[in-house]
Write a protein that binds this DNA or RNA. Structure first.
Lengths: 218, 218
DNA sequence: GTAAAAAATACCCCATTGGGGTATTGCACC
DNA sequence: GGTGCAATACCCCAATGGGGTATTTTTTAC
Protein backbone atom coordinates (compact mmCIF):
# COMPACT_ATOMS: atom_id res chain seq x y z
CA UNK A 1 0.00 0.00 0.00
CA UNK A 2 1.98 2.89 -1.37
CA UNK A 3 1.46 6.49 -0.34
CA UNK A 4 0.08 7.32 -3.79
CA UNK A 5 -2.90 5.00 -3.67
CA UNK A 6 -6.39 6.39 -3.88
CA UNK A 7 -8.42 5.25 -0.89
CA UNK A 8 -11.93 4.30 -1.88
CA UNK A 9 -14.89 3.50 0.39
CA UNK A 10 -17.72 1.46 -1.13
CA UNK A 11 -21.36 1.99 -0.14
CA UNK A 12 -23.39 -0.69 -1.88
CA UNK A 13 -26.18 -2.93 -0.65
CA UNK A 14 -25.73 -5.75 -3.18
CA UNK A 15 -23.13 -8.15 -1.84
CA UNK A 16 -22.09 -9.46 -5.25
CA UNK A 17 -21.47 -5.99 -6.63
CA UNK A 18 -19.79 -4.94 -3.39
CA UNK A 19 -17.36 -7.84 -3.42
CA UNK A 20 -16.65 -7.42 -7.12
CA UNK A 21 -15.83 -3.74 -6.66
CA UNK A 22 -13.63 -4.45 -3.69
CA UNK A 23 -11.73 -7.12 -5.64
CA UNK A 24 -11.24 -4.82 -8.62
CA UNK A 25 -9.99 -1.95 -6.47
CA UNK A 26 -7.63 -4.03 -4.40
CA UNK A 27 -6.39 -5.86 -7.47
CA UNK A 28 -5.46 -2.66 -9.29
CA UNK A 29 -2.26 -0.78 -8.50
CA UNK A 30 -3.00 2.79 -7.42
CA UNK A 31 -6.30 1.97 -5.76
CA UNK A 32 -7.13 0.66 -2.29
CA UNK A 33 -10.51 -0.25 -0.99
CA UNK A 34 -10.37 1.21 2.51
CA UNK A 35 -13.88 0.29 3.55
CA UNK A 36 -16.92 -1.66 2.37
CA UNK A 37 -20.39 -0.86 3.70
CA UNK A 38 -23.79 -2.31 2.90
CA UNK A 39 -25.68 0.83 3.83
CA UNK A 40 -25.23 4.38 5.06
CA UNK A 41 -26.81 3.93 8.45
CA UNK A 42 -23.50 4.39 10.23
CA UNK A 43 -22.00 6.66 7.61
CA UNK A 44 -20.05 8.81 10.06
CA UNK A 45 -18.34 5.85 11.73
CA UNK A 46 -17.79 4.28 8.28
CA UNK A 47 -16.08 7.38 6.95
CA UNK A 48 -13.93 7.87 10.04
CA UNK A 49 -12.77 4.25 10.02
CA UNK A 50 -12.07 4.05 6.29
CA UNK A 51 -10.67 7.55 5.72
CA UNK A 52 -11.46 7.51 1.99
CA UNK A 53 -10.39 9.97 -0.69
CA UNK A 54 -13.35 8.91 -2.76
CA UNK A 55 -16.67 7.33 -1.76
CA UNK A 56 -18.35 5.14 -4.33
CA UNK A 57 -22.01 5.56 -3.50
CA UNK A 58 -25.02 3.49 -4.45
CA UNK A 59 -28.23 5.49 -4.54
CA UNK A 60 -30.61 2.71 -3.62
CA UNK A 61 -29.77 1.36 -0.20
CA UNK A 62 -31.87 0.13 2.70
CA UNK A 63 -32.29 2.65 5.51
CA UNK A 64 -30.53 5.87 4.72
CA UNK A 65 -30.23 6.19 0.96
CA UNK A 66 -27.19 7.29 -1.01
CA UNK A 67 -28.51 10.79 -1.55
CA UNK A 68 -28.89 11.46 2.15
CA UNK A 69 -25.47 9.96 2.88
CA UNK A 70 -23.97 12.13 0.12
CA UNK A 71 -25.50 15.21 1.69
CA UNK A 72 -24.14 14.32 5.12
CA UNK A 73 -20.66 13.52 3.87
CA UNK A 74 -20.35 16.70 1.81
CA UNK A 75 -21.56 18.69 4.81
CA UNK A 76 -19.17 17.11 7.29
CA UNK A 77 -16.25 16.01 5.12
CA UNK A 78 -16.21 18.31 2.09
CA UNK A 79 -12.76 17.09 1.04
CA UNK A 80 -14.12 13.62 0.24
CA UNK A 81 -15.22 13.21 -3.37
CA UNK A 82 -18.35 11.24 -4.02
CA UNK A 83 -18.93 9.17 -7.09
CA UNK A 84 -22.53 8.14 -7.48
CA UNK A 85 -23.32 4.83 -9.13
CA UNK A 86 -26.72 3.46 -9.87
CA UNK A 87 -28.64 1.19 -12.18
CA UNK A 88 -31.50 3.60 -12.25
CA UNK A 89 -32.09 6.03 -15.01
CA UNK A 90 -34.21 8.12 -12.70
CA UNK A 91 -33.69 11.80 -13.51
CA UNK A 92 -35.20 12.89 -10.24
CA UNK A 93 -32.69 10.87 -8.22
CA UNK A 94 -29.77 11.95 -10.36
CA UNK A 95 -30.57 15.56 -9.70
CA UNK A 96 -31.11 15.09 -6.04
CA UNK A 97 -27.69 13.45 -5.87
CA UNK A 98 -26.06 16.23 -7.86
CA UNK A 99 -27.63 18.81 -5.58
CA UNK A 100 -26.45 16.89 -2.56
CA UNK A 101 -22.90 17.49 -3.76
CA UNK A 102 -21.87 14.42 -5.74
CA UNK A 103 -18.71 14.96 -7.77
CA UNK A 104 -19.46 12.48 -10.50
CA UNK A 105 -21.94 9.99 -11.76
CA UNK A 106 -21.58 6.61 -13.40
CA UNK A 107 -23.99 3.85 -14.28
CA UNK A 108 -23.66 0.39 -12.80
CA UNK A 109 -23.41 -1.31 -16.14
CA UNK A 110 -20.30 0.68 -17.02
CA UNK A 111 -17.29 -1.66 -17.35
CA UNK A 112 -14.69 -1.86 -14.55
CA UNK A 113 -12.12 0.26 -16.38
CA UNK A 114 -14.67 3.08 -16.52
CA UNK A 115 -15.07 2.84 -12.77
CA UNK A 116 -11.35 3.15 -12.27
CA UNK A 117 -11.10 6.07 -14.68
CA UNK A 118 -13.99 7.82 -13.00
CA UNK A 119 -12.52 7.32 -9.53
CA UNK A 120 -9.25 8.72 -10.76
CA UNK A 121 -11.01 11.64 -12.36
CA UNK A 122 -13.00 12.73 -9.30
CA UNK A 123 -9.89 12.27 -7.21
CA UNK A 124 -8.06 14.69 -9.51
CA UNK A 125 -10.82 17.24 -9.20
CA UNK A 126 -12.66 16.29 -12.37
CA UNK A 127 -16.29 15.56 -12.88
CA UNK A 128 -16.92 12.31 -14.71
CA UNK A 129 -20.44 11.83 -15.95
CA UNK A 130 -21.44 9.02 -18.20
CA UNK A 131 -22.92 10.02 -21.54
CA UNK A 132 -26.36 8.85 -20.48
CA UNK A 133 -26.27 10.96 -17.37
CA UNK A 134 -24.88 13.96 -19.23
CA UNK A 135 -27.80 13.76 -21.60
CA UNK A 136 -30.24 13.77 -18.73
CA UNK A 137 -28.49 16.69 -17.10
CA UNK A 138 -28.62 18.80 -20.25
CA UNK A 139 -32.19 17.72 -20.94
CA UNK A 140 -33.17 18.76 -17.47
CA UNK A 141 -31.88 22.25 -18.04
CA UNK A 142 -34.02 22.59 -21.13
CA UNK A 143 -37.11 21.57 -19.23
CA UNK A 144 -39.01 23.90 -16.99
CA UNK A 145 -37.95 22.02 -13.88
CA UNK A 146 -34.99 24.18 -13.03
CA UNK A 147 -34.94 27.74 -11.90
CA UNK A 148 -31.57 29.38 -12.17
CA UNK A 149 -30.72 32.19 -9.89
CA UNK A 150 -28.03 34.40 -11.32
CA UNK A 151 -25.05 34.76 -9.02
CA UNK A 152 -24.84 38.40 -10.08
CA UNK A 153 -28.19 39.21 -8.63
CA UNK A 154 -27.15 38.21 -5.14
CA UNK A 155 -25.67 41.54 -4.20
CA UNK A 156 -28.50 43.56 -2.81
CA UNK A 157 -26.36 46.10 -1.01
CA UNK A 158 -28.05 45.47 2.30
CA UNK A 159 -26.46 47.30 5.20
CA UNK A 160 -25.15 45.28 8.16
CA UNK A 161 -28.12 46.24 10.27
CA UNK A 162 -30.52 45.27 7.51
CA UNK A 163 -28.87 41.87 7.21
CA UNK A 164 -29.30 41.39 10.97
CA UNK A 165 -32.97 42.26 10.75
CA UNK A 166 -33.45 39.99 7.74
CA UNK A 167 -31.74 37.18 9.60
CA UNK A 168 -34.13 37.61 12.53
CA UNK A 169 -37.03 37.56 10.08
CA UNK A 170 -35.76 34.29 8.59
CA UNK A 171 -35.72 32.87 12.13
CA UNK A 172 -39.42 33.61 12.35
CA UNK A 173 -39.44 36.57 14.73
CA UNK A 174 -42.18 39.14 14.41
CA UNK A 175 -41.52 42.87 14.45
CA UNK A 176 -42.03 43.14 18.21
CA UNK A 177 -39.50 40.39 18.95
CA UNK A 178 -37.01 41.70 16.43
CA UNK A 179 -37.27 45.10 18.10
CA UNK A 180 -36.60 43.62 21.53
CA UNK A 181 -33.71 41.47 20.36
CA UNK A 182 -32.11 44.36 18.47
CA UNK A 183 -32.70 46.91 21.26
CA UNK A 184 -34.49 49.29 18.90
CA UNK A 185 -38.10 50.33 18.60
CA UNK A 186 -40.85 48.50 16.77
CA UNK A 187 -41.13 51.37 14.32
CA UNK A 188 -37.43 51.29 13.52
CA UNK A 189 -37.70 47.62 12.70
CA UNK A 190 -40.50 48.49 10.32
CA UNK A 191 -38.40 51.16 8.68
CA UNK A 192 -35.53 48.70 8.17
CA UNK A 193 -37.91 46.10 6.77
CA UNK A 194 -39.30 48.60 4.27
CA UNK A 195 -35.76 49.33 3.10
CA UNK A 196 -34.96 45.63 2.87
CA UNK A 197 -38.04 45.01 0.72
CA UNK A 198 -37.10 47.81 -1.63
CA UNK A 199 -33.56 46.50 -2.00
CA UNK A 200 -34.67 42.90 -2.51
CA UNK A 201 -37.51 43.93 -4.84
CA UNK A 202 -40.08 42.02 -2.83
CA UNK A 203 -43.32 43.00 -1.19
CA UNK A 204 -43.81 40.56 1.63
CA UNK A 205 -42.13 38.90 4.53
CA UNK A 206 -42.28 35.46 3.00
CA UNK A 207 -40.80 36.55 -0.30
CA UNK A 208 -37.95 38.25 1.52
CA UNK A 209 -37.33 35.11 3.56
CA UNK A 210 -37.37 32.93 0.46
CA UNK A 211 -34.89 35.15 -1.28
CA UNK A 212 -32.68 35.33 1.78
CA UNK A 213 -32.59 31.56 2.13
CA UNK A 214 -32.20 30.67 -1.53
CA UNK A 215 -29.51 33.23 -2.14
CA UNK A 216 -27.76 32.79 1.15
CA UNK A 217 -27.98 36.28 2.49
CA UNK A 218 -26.41 36.21 5.93
CA UNK B 1 -22.27 14.57 -50.80
CA UNK B 2 -23.68 11.27 -49.66
CA UNK B 3 -27.00 10.84 -47.94
CA UNK B 4 -25.29 9.92 -44.72
CA UNK B 5 -23.47 13.19 -44.18
CA UNK B 6 -24.21 15.30 -41.13
CA UNK B 7 -25.23 18.80 -42.18
CA UNK B 8 -23.68 21.40 -39.94
CA UNK B 9 -24.41 25.14 -39.82
CA UNK B 10 -21.75 27.37 -38.29
CA UNK B 11 -22.61 30.49 -36.31
CA UNK B 12 -19.36 32.23 -35.49
CA UNK B 13 -18.34 35.87 -35.65
CA UNK B 14 -14.58 35.35 -36.00
CA UNK B 15 -13.79 34.90 -39.69
CA UNK B 16 -10.60 32.91 -39.09
CA UNK B 17 -12.35 30.41 -36.83
CA UNK B 18 -15.34 30.32 -39.15
CA UNK B 19 -13.25 29.49 -42.21
CA UNK B 20 -11.19 26.94 -40.32
CA UNK B 21 -14.29 25.13 -39.11
CA UNK B 22 -15.82 25.17 -42.56
CA UNK B 23 -12.63 23.72 -44.07
CA UNK B 24 -12.43 20.98 -41.44
CA UNK B 25 -16.06 19.99 -41.90
CA UNK B 26 -15.97 19.96 -45.68
CA UNK B 27 -12.64 18.15 -45.65
CA UNK B 28 -13.90 15.31 -43.50
CA UNK B 29 -16.00 12.50 -44.93
CA UNK B 30 -19.35 12.25 -43.19
CA UNK B 31 -19.67 15.96 -42.50
CA UNK B 32 -20.92 18.82 -44.65
CA UNK B 33 -20.93 22.45 -43.78
CA UNK B 34 -24.32 23.52 -45.06
CA UNK B 35 -24.12 27.15 -43.97
CA UNK B 36 -21.74 29.65 -42.45
CA UNK B 37 -23.04 32.72 -40.61
CA UNK B 38 -21.24 35.53 -38.85
CA UNK B 39 -24.13 36.27 -36.50
CA UNK B 40 -27.64 35.18 -35.55
CA UNK B 41 -29.44 38.28 -36.75
CA UNK B 42 -31.12 36.40 -39.57
CA UNK B 43 -31.17 33.08 -37.80
CA UNK B 44 -34.49 31.95 -39.24
CA UNK B 45 -33.45 32.57 -42.82
CA UNK B 46 -30.04 31.03 -42.09
CA UNK B 47 -31.59 27.86 -40.72
CA UNK B 48 -34.09 27.53 -43.55
CA UNK B 49 -31.41 27.97 -46.20
CA UNK B 50 -28.85 25.65 -44.64
CA UNK B 51 -31.18 22.93 -43.30
CA UNK B 52 -28.66 21.73 -40.73
CA UNK B 53 -28.80 18.64 -38.55
CA UNK B 54 -26.50 20.33 -36.08
CA UNK B 55 -25.82 24.01 -35.44
CA UNK B 56 -22.39 24.87 -34.11
CA UNK B 57 -23.07 27.98 -32.09
CA UNK B 58 -20.73 30.64 -30.78
CA UNK B 59 -22.01 32.33 -27.63
CA UNK B 60 -20.40 35.70 -28.19
CA UNK B 61 -21.67 37.26 -31.37
CA UNK B 62 -22.54 40.79 -32.37
CA UNK B 63 -26.25 41.60 -32.34
CA UNK B 64 -28.27 38.58 -31.27
CA UNK B 65 -26.04 36.36 -29.14
CA UNK B 66 -25.74 32.60 -29.33
CA UNK B 67 -27.94 32.02 -26.32
CA UNK B 68 -30.86 33.91 -27.83
CA UNK B 69 -30.37 32.18 -31.17
CA UNK B 70 -30.28 28.81 -29.39
CA UNK B 71 -33.55 29.61 -27.67
CA UNK B 72 -35.21 30.59 -30.93
CA UNK B 73 -33.95 27.56 -32.82
CA UNK B 74 -35.01 25.09 -30.15
CA UNK B 75 -38.41 26.75 -30.03
CA UNK B 76 -38.97 26.74 -33.77
CA UNK B 77 -36.86 23.80 -34.95
CA UNK B 78 -36.62 21.39 -32.02
CA UNK B 79 -35.18 18.64 -34.21
CA UNK B 80 -31.97 20.62 -34.79
CA UNK B 81 -29.25 19.82 -32.27
CA UNK B 82 -27.19 22.70 -31.01
CA UNK B 83 -23.58 22.42 -30.01
CA UNK B 84 -22.37 25.44 -28.09
CA UNK B 85 -18.76 26.48 -28.44
CA UNK B 86 -17.09 29.29 -26.62
CA UNK B 87 -13.74 30.49 -25.37
CA UNK B 88 -15.38 31.72 -22.21
CA UNK B 89 -15.36 29.83 -18.98
CA UNK B 90 -18.31 31.85 -17.85
CA UNK B 91 -20.60 29.67 -15.74
CA UNK B 92 -23.46 32.07 -16.12
CA UNK B 93 -23.39 31.89 -19.92
CA UNK B 94 -22.98 28.14 -19.91
CA UNK B 95 -26.10 27.74 -17.83
CA UNK B 96 -28.10 30.17 -19.84
CA UNK B 97 -27.16 28.21 -22.95
CA UNK B 98 -28.04 24.90 -21.34
CA UNK B 99 -31.41 26.29 -20.28
CA UNK B 100 -31.98 27.60 -23.78
CA UNK B 101 -31.82 24.03 -24.97
CA UNK B 102 -28.26 23.39 -26.13
CA UNK B 103 -27.50 19.71 -26.66
CA UNK B 104 -23.82 19.88 -25.98
CA UNK B 105 -20.99 22.12 -25.01
CA UNK B 106 -17.39 22.30 -26.13
CA UNK B 107 -14.62 24.79 -25.58
CA UNK B 108 -13.02 26.59 -28.48
CA UNK B 109 -9.53 25.39 -27.64
CA UNK B 110 -10.61 21.80 -28.03
CA UNK B 111 -8.78 20.17 -30.98
CA UNK B 112 -10.61 19.63 -34.32
CA UNK B 113 -11.14 15.92 -33.75
CA UNK B 114 -13.03 16.74 -30.56
CA UNK B 115 -15.29 19.01 -32.56
CA UNK B 116 -16.04 16.23 -35.01
CA UNK B 117 -16.65 13.72 -32.22
CA UNK B 118 -18.94 16.15 -30.45
CA UNK B 119 -20.91 16.91 -33.61
CA UNK B 120 -21.31 13.21 -34.19
CA UNK B 121 -22.37 12.68 -30.63
CA UNK B 122 -25.09 15.34 -30.55
CA UNK B 123 -26.28 14.12 -33.93
CA UNK B 124 -26.68 10.62 -32.47
CA UNK B 125 -28.67 11.96 -29.55
CA UNK B 126 -25.78 12.18 -27.12
CA UNK B 127 -24.73 15.05 -24.94
CA UNK B 128 -21.06 15.87 -25.23
CA UNK B 129 -19.75 18.16 -22.57
CA UNK B 130 -16.11 18.88 -22.12
CA UNK B 131 -14.65 17.96 -18.74
CA UNK B 132 -14.32 21.62 -17.80
CA UNK B 133 -17.95 22.27 -18.52
CA UNK B 134 -19.08 19.10 -16.75
CA UNK B 135 -17.27 20.22 -13.64
CA UNK B 136 -19.01 23.56 -13.73
CA UNK B 137 -22.37 21.91 -14.25
CA UNK B 138 -21.95 19.59 -11.28
CA UNK B 139 -20.51 22.39 -9.17
CA UNK B 140 -23.50 24.49 -9.97
CA UNK B 141 -25.85 21.87 -8.61
CA UNK B 142 -23.98 21.80 -5.32
CA UNK B 143 -24.28 25.53 -4.96
CA UNK B 144 -27.43 27.23 -3.84
CA UNK B 145 -28.08 28.61 -7.29
CA UNK B 146 -30.45 25.93 -8.50
CA UNK B 147 -33.97 25.31 -7.39
CA UNK B 148 -35.46 22.02 -8.43
CA UNK B 149 -39.18 21.79 -8.81
CA UNK B 150 -40.54 18.29 -8.43
CA UNK B 151 -43.03 17.49 -11.16
CA UNK B 152 -44.96 15.32 -8.69
CA UNK B 153 -45.96 18.14 -6.38
CA UNK B 154 -48.19 20.00 -8.79
CA UNK B 155 -51.55 18.55 -7.83
CA UNK B 156 -52.95 20.60 -5.01
CA UNK B 157 -56.59 19.49 -5.31
CA UNK B 158 -57.90 23.03 -5.51
CA UNK B 159 -61.61 23.26 -6.21
CA UNK B 160 -62.77 25.15 -9.31
CA UNK B 161 -63.84 28.14 -7.25
CA UNK B 162 -60.50 28.17 -5.45
CA UNK B 163 -58.66 28.17 -8.77
CA UNK B 164 -60.76 31.14 -9.88
CA UNK B 165 -59.93 33.05 -6.71
CA UNK B 166 -56.23 32.17 -7.02
CA UNK B 167 -56.28 33.36 -10.60
CA UNK B 168 -57.75 36.69 -9.52
CA UNK B 169 -55.06 36.94 -6.86
CA UNK B 170 -52.36 36.34 -9.47
CA UNK B 171 -53.87 39.21 -11.45
CA UNK B 172 -53.24 41.47 -8.49
CA UNK B 173 -56.78 41.97 -7.20
CA UNK B 174 -57.34 42.55 -3.50
CA UNK B 175 -60.00 40.76 -1.50
CA UNK B 176 -62.55 43.53 -2.06
CA UNK B 177 -62.12 43.43 -5.85
CA UNK B 178 -62.09 39.65 -5.97
CA UNK B 179 -65.35 39.68 -4.01
CA UNK B 180 -66.96 42.11 -6.47
CA UNK B 181 -65.73 40.26 -9.54
CA UNK B 182 -66.85 36.89 -8.17
CA UNK B 183 -70.21 38.18 -6.87
CA UNK B 184 -69.55 36.86 -3.39
CA UNK B 185 -68.81 38.59 -0.12
CA UNK B 186 -65.44 39.82 1.09
CA UNK B 187 -65.52 37.28 3.90
CA UNK B 188 -66.17 34.41 1.55
CA UNK B 189 -63.15 35.39 -0.48
CA UNK B 190 -61.14 35.27 2.72
CA UNK B 191 -62.45 31.83 3.53
CA UNK B 192 -61.48 30.58 0.08
CA UNK B 193 -58.04 32.13 0.39
CA UNK B 194 -57.47 30.43 3.73
CA UNK B 195 -58.34 27.09 2.15
CA UNK B 196 -56.06 27.80 -0.81
CA UNK B 197 -53.15 28.58 1.52
CA UNK B 198 -53.67 25.35 3.42
CA UNK B 199 -53.76 23.31 0.24
CA UNK B 200 -50.70 25.01 -1.26
CA UNK B 201 -48.81 24.91 2.04
CA UNK B 202 -48.08 28.62 1.97
CA UNK B 203 -48.78 31.44 4.37
CA UNK B 204 -48.97 34.54 2.26
CA UNK B 205 -50.45 36.04 -0.84
CA UNK B 206 -47.10 36.38 -2.58
CA UNK B 207 -46.03 32.80 -1.91
CA UNK B 208 -49.33 31.56 -3.26
CA UNK B 209 -48.91 33.68 -6.38
CA UNK B 210 -45.35 32.45 -6.91
CA UNK B 211 -46.44 28.85 -6.60
CA UNK B 212 -49.37 29.40 -8.91
CA UNK B 213 -47.19 30.96 -11.57
CA UNK B 214 -44.22 28.59 -11.35
CA UNK B 215 -46.36 25.49 -11.28
CA UNK B 216 -48.91 26.71 -13.75
CA UNK B 217 -52.05 26.46 -11.68
CA UNK B 218 -54.86 27.80 -13.82
C1' DG C 1 -12.86 70.45 5.75
C1' DT C 2 -17.23 70.76 4.48
C1' DA C 3 -21.17 69.24 1.85
C1' DA C 4 -23.83 65.52 0.27
C1' DA C 5 -25.32 60.84 0.74
C1' DA C 6 -26.44 56.88 3.31
C1' DA C 7 -27.60 54.50 7.54
C1' DA C 8 -29.91 54.14 11.82
C1' DT C 9 -33.12 55.70 14.73
C1' DA C 10 -38.27 56.84 15.67
C1' DC C 11 -43.06 58.16 15.11
C1' DC C 12 -47.65 58.97 12.53
C1' DC C 13 -51.76 57.28 9.68
C1' DC C 14 -54.38 53.60 7.79
C1' DA C 15 -55.56 49.79 4.44
C1' DT C 16 -54.72 45.03 3.77
C1' DT C 17 -53.71 40.60 5.10
C1' DG C 18 -53.72 36.27 7.87
C1' DG C 19 -55.36 33.00 11.45
C1' DG C 20 -58.65 31.48 14.70
C1' DG C 21 -63.26 30.65 15.27
C1' DT C 22 -68.60 29.53 13.99
C1' DA C 23 -72.54 28.70 10.97
C1' DT C 24 -75.82 27.67 7.10
C1' DT C 25 -76.97 25.67 2.73
C1' DG C 26 -76.86 22.35 -0.88
C1' DC C 27 -75.10 18.34 -3.08
C1' DA C 28 -73.09 13.75 -3.58
C1' DC C 29 -72.02 9.22 -1.89
C1' DC C 30 -72.90 5.09 0.61
C1' DG D 1 -80.55 9.52 6.55
C1' DG D 2 -76.20 10.55 8.04
C1' DT D 3 -71.43 11.90 6.68
C1' DG D 4 -68.45 14.75 4.18
C1' DC D 5 -67.28 18.51 1.30
C1' DA D 6 -67.73 22.84 -1.27
C1' DA D 7 -69.47 27.31 -1.11
C1' DT D 8 -71.31 30.82 1.22
C1' DA D 9 -70.94 34.35 5.19
C1' DC D 10 -69.79 36.58 9.55
C1' DC D 11 -66.94 37.60 13.99
C1' DC D 12 -62.57 39.10 16.48
C1' DC D 13 -58.01 40.62 16.44
C1' DA D 14 -52.95 40.44 15.60
C1' DA D 15 -49.59 41.25 12.11
C1' DT D 16 -48.05 43.22 8.01
C1' DG D 17 -47.16 46.73 4.34
C1' DG D 18 -46.96 51.38 2.30
C1' DG D 19 -47.10 56.25 2.62
C1' DG D 20 -45.37 59.95 5.05
C1' DT D 21 -41.91 62.95 8.26
C1' DA D 22 -37.92 63.75 11.22
C1' DT D 23 -33.47 63.61 13.90
C1' DT D 24 -28.86 61.95 14.62
C1' DT D 25 -24.73 59.76 13.26
C1' DT D 26 -21.60 57.89 10.01
C1' DT D 27 -19.57 57.54 5.60
C1' DT D 28 -18.34 59.15 1.28
C1' DA D 29 -17.02 62.54 -2.03
C1' DC D 30 -14.99 66.63 -3.82
Amino acid sequence: MGAMEIRVAIFEDNKLVRDALEAILNGTPGYTCSGVFADGNNWERSIKSSQPDVALMDIEMPGMNGIEVTQHITDEFPEIKILIQTVFNDSEKIFQALCAGASGYILKNDPPHKYLEAINEVYSGGAPISATVAKKVLGFFSSKNVVLISPESTDYQLSEREKEILHLMVEGNNYRTIADKSFISYETVRTHVKHIYKKLHVASRSEAIQKAIHQGIH
